[in-house]
Design a protein around this nucleic acid. Structure first.
Lengths: 163, 163
DNA sequence: GGTGGATAGTTTAGGTCTAAAGCAATTGGA
DNA sequence: TCCAATTGCTTTAGACCTAAACTATCCACC
């Protein structure tokens, strides 16, 4: 008899008189629940989600990435990337090399240590996510994935309309 | 011919070799897109999402809330509530009153100014969310809402299993 | 009474993130 | 050629958030 606690929804009941807002609050609560869970587990390994994101982007760009490219790939600000990369460099997980062709720019690459670190974290991350969605069958996941695709399109359109 | 830009997905292509991770990344990108959009619009009015959340919770508890109750309602830490409420009090949007029955506790209530401020923000917030999901029809929204409900249950179960 | 936990909140140290200002290098014209 | 705009990145100021340590109070029980 495993009792399952429901994930709470912020403002449960309030604010949610409009269906669109109710949908948004549920979307938010699901994302937060997963994000906090993953965050907490990363913390248990001395890592953070933000740093993991940087390592992940670099892992698939063996040739290295410019800071700006990282910023665009991760959807975060330039200044944020600067901070993260400098700390990762201090920890020996990435190396920052100047770009001879353009002395403003620099190329960031994973070190061997960084690549190994990422491999370990990525495997764990996969397992955590698998565990969290384990109770949905393949079809339910497919439906959700598709529905999120529609939402994604709607958001893009909505943002394009009202600037 | 309105060209709609797609919302980018973090790590698009990478990391996403497992369906569960692909689902998670899409969920994350939708949530982030809405959250940043709302955040940006709030900023345009000199407000923030975190402060709005506090006001929303207080708006539906006319009798006031204790700090701890706020913390639980908003799913954020105690210290965070302390900061937010103290700043809101300084801005005259809430009032902090001691609870005679328990001198450790204090009751937070909206001021008239705070209630008016919330009303304005809430109406705008509704409209923004409506705009972002406008391109999904009622049935699609219902499907998504239901699918998120299943995810929510799966997450709760997954978290219960592996602590 | 007194005393040892619970409980309510605050503080502190540190990580995340952004917008905006600033610096340096590059590039595209006039 | 030269200079103005652009580009790549860093810095700064500030908002948000947390965990953990801390203070103050309450409460249950001997």
């Amino acid at each position: 008899m495993t009792e399952v606690l429901a994930i709470r929804e912020k403002h449960d009941g309030a604010l949610a008189d409009r269906s669109s807002v109710r949908l948004w609050l549920r979307l938010l609560s699901c994302t937060m629940a997963i994000e906090k869970d993953v965050q907490r587990r990363f913390a248990g390994r001395g890592a953070t989600l933000a740093r993991f994101d940087v390592l992940a982007a670099l892992d698939r760009h063996e040739e290295g990435m410019m800071m700006g490219a990282l910023s665009r790939a991760l959807l975060v600000s330039n200044g944020n990337v600067t901070q993260l990369v400098q700390k990762l460099a201090k920890d020996g997980l990435v190396r920052i090399a100047p770009l001879p062709a353009d002395r403003r720019a620099s190329i960031v690459r994973l070190t061997a240590k960084g690549r190994a670190e990422f491999a370990g974290l990525a495997a764990a991350h996969h397992d955590w996510i698998d565990g969290l969605v384990a109770d949905m069958d393949g079809e339910a996941r497919e439906i959700l994935y598709h529905a999120l695709g529609e939402l994604k399109r709607s958001i893009a359109k909505g943002q394009a309309l009202e600037p």
